[in-house]
Structures are given as structure tokens and as C-alpha cells.
């Protein structure tokens, strides 16, 4: 009872509210970490990859995730020296739709194909955030970006995998159909739309 009262008192102290007064500059690390959530193109490509992986047997997913880690590390460090052209929304849409179709096509994707798809998405996603010119900030941003990419894929795959363990293939198929729908509509947008 006393503990509860003390807790309530601590919560009511006005000073505690001041801890969250800044939502503006999160810093390079956190901005890159959260980039897949802020950039729908990057987020959807990663979600699409995770959905494809969720429709594959686990032994293949292990290899694909290893490929994702290596490709993300390599591409992120390369992004410091090479400028990557910004992908048009149409191409992102087609890529997302293709990932959805791959997930919908029930069956095991040949492992080399799965690895190639994983590496391609890792490269595109790693070049997505624009990094600062300051080397220290860039390094922090790159680590944030790597972690963000790996976490998004792991979380979406984990969510779908656990749902599929209980409900069978439908959750993966429904998610794949959503991704295809989003991709088709993005690809159909007229030229010049953001």
C-alpha cells in the first residue's frame, strides 16, 4: 500500500514530465534506426522481404538472414563512398509487388534466388538514408541504419512466423496480398507524383 502511494507520488511529480521535451533531433543513430518507419519505400521493401522469408522453411530463412546481415554491412559501408541514385516510386512499387507475388506463389523459393533477392533488398535499403558529411555522425547513422534494417525484417518475420505457427499459411498470404496491392498502386501513380 505504502509502495503504491510512493509510486503514485513519484508519478505525480511534475519534473518527470520534462524527460520527453524534445522530439525534434533524435540524433543520427536513432534517426537512421527509425528510418524504415519514416520512409514508406524502405519500410515496405523490408516488410516485403520479411513476408517472403515468412513463407519459406526456417533452414532457408537462416541462410537468407545471414546474407541480409553481410549485405547490409557491406552496402552500408559502401554507401559512404558511392552515391546511389534515388529509386523512382514506380520501381519501388514494382519491387514491393514482386516480393508479394513471390510470397503468394506457395512453395519453396530456390535458395540461390532467395539469397539474391535478400541481397538486392539489403543493398537498396542500405543506400536509402542520406548520410551527413561529418564522419563521426555518418558512422553513427550507418550503425543505426544497419540495426534498423535487421530489426524490421526480424520483427515482421517473427510476427508472421508465430502467427503462421498457430493459424497455418493464411496470415502470410494475407500479408503478401496487402504488399502486392500497395505495390501495384504505387507503380500506377502518374509520373511526377512524390
Amino acid at each position: 500500500m505504502r509502495k503504491s502511494a510512493a509510486l503514485l507520488g513519484a508519478l505525480l511529480i511534475p519534473g518527470s514530465a520534462r524527460a520527453h521535451d524534445a522530439f525534434g533531433d533524435l540524433g543520427a543513430f536513432y534517426q537512421s534506426l527509425l528510418h524504415p518507419l519514416a520512409d514508406p519505400a524502405q519500410g515496405l521493401l523490408l516488410a516485403g522481404l520479411a513476408i517472403v522469408l515468412a513463407c519459406q522453411p526456417r533452414e532457408n530463412v537462416q541462410w537468407a538472414y545471414l546474407a541480409l546481415i553481410i549485405a547490409t554491412l557491406a552496402a552500408s559501408w559502401l554507401s559512404m563512398t558511392i552515391a546511389f541514385p534515388e529509386l523512382k516510386l514506380r520501381w519501388v512499387g514494382l519491387g514491393v509487388a514482386a516480393l508479394g507475388v513471390l510470397a503468394l506463389s506457395s512453395g519453396r523459393v530456390w535458395l540461390p534466388v532467395l539469397l539474391c533477392v535478400t541481397v538486392a533488398i539489403a543493398v537498396i535499403a542500405s543506400f536509402a538514408p542520406g548520410f551527413a558529411s561529418d564522419p563521426r555522425t555518418t558512422v553513427r547513422a550507418i550503425w543505426g541504419s544497419i540495426l534498423g534494417i535487421l530489426l524490421v525484417v526480424l520483427l515482421v518475420w517473427g510476427l508472421l512466423d508465430s502467427l503462421q505457427a498457430r493459424l497455418g499459411r493464411p496470415p502470410g498470404l494475407v500479408a503478401a496480398s496487402w504488399i502486392v496491392a500497395i505495390g501495384i498502386m504505387a507503380a500506377a501513380l502518374p509520373e511526377g507524383v512524390a
Partner: peptide
């Protein structure tokens, strides 16, 4: 629920 979004996307496009 799988058919609906797939065809809805065509209408959306």
C-alpha cells in the same frame, strides 16, 4: 480477404 486487396489494387491503380 486475399482476393479483395489484390483486385482492389487494380481499381486503385
Amino acid at each position: 480477404p486475399v482476393t479483395f486487396p489484390l483486385v482492389m489494387a487494380l481499381g486503385g491503380a
